[in-house]
Simulated assay, not measured.
Amino acid sequence: MNIFILNAFLAISWSALIGSFTLSNLLIGYIIGYAALWVARPLFKASNYFERVWRVLRLILLFIYELVISSFQVVWDVITPTHLSSPGIIAVPLDAETDEEILLVANLISLTPGSLSLDVSPDRKTLYVHAMFVDDPEILRREIKEGLERSVIEALR
């Protein structure tokens, strides 16, 4: 059985035991189930599930951090009389290979204020991004590749 499905079953069982199917009870049940499965991991065949959970959590935290920072940056640029934005379009070479990886990278970029994924090249090797603050295209390209793209690839592979 897939360990994630087993963990989800334990979370649902926890909520049933408590008698309330709220998001907080499901989250607590998931955490307790994760801990129980982590202790029992020698019983399962080799799996990267336990590491993947941490990588997905890291991706979520990175996205929240980027969301907050870029929101403040955009708000500051909008409310101050001098506009510091220098919009531009950059081409980001992709290491993401699957449709899911490319889709997630493009959507996370688009969900971040001040940036928008425009297109993916036909060979799926380049993502075109419009950004509000492109002071140095190479720095922005490196931030996307070493930040969101790397985290997405680690979480999905």
Rank of each mutant, 00 (worst) to 15 (best):
V92N: 08
R58V: 05
I12Q: 09
N48L: 13
D119L: 13
F133R: 08
S115E: 03
Y49P: 02
D119Y: 11
R41A: 03
R41V: 01
Y128E: 02
T126I: 15
E143I: 14
G147P: 13
T80R: 12
S115T: 15
I31F: 14
Y65A: 07
V75A: 14
I12K: 02
I139S: 06
I69Q: 04
I89K: 03
L118H: 05
L94P: 02
S85F: 02
Y30Q: 04
E101R: 10
R124P: 04
M132S: 13
E101C: 12
E101A: 12
Y34L: 12
A11S: 14
V39N: 00
A96L: 04
D136A: 01
D135W: 13
I79H: 03
E101I: 06
I139E: 07
F63S: 15
V129F: 02
S115C: 01
S86E: 09
G29V: 03
R124M: 09
D95M: 09
N25H: 14
F133P: 10
P42L: 03
K145V: 15
I69V: 13
L127Y: 10
Y128H: 08
A40L: 09
W38L: 11
V120Y: 00
A91I: 06
A36K: 00
D95G: 10
L108C: 14
A96Y: 11
S110R: 03
D123T: 05
A106S: 15
E66V: 13
D123H: 03
G114V: 08
K125I: 04
G33C: 06
L111H: 15
D99R: 12
L26F: 14
I79N: 01
K45R: 14
D119N: 15
G19D: 05
I69P: 00
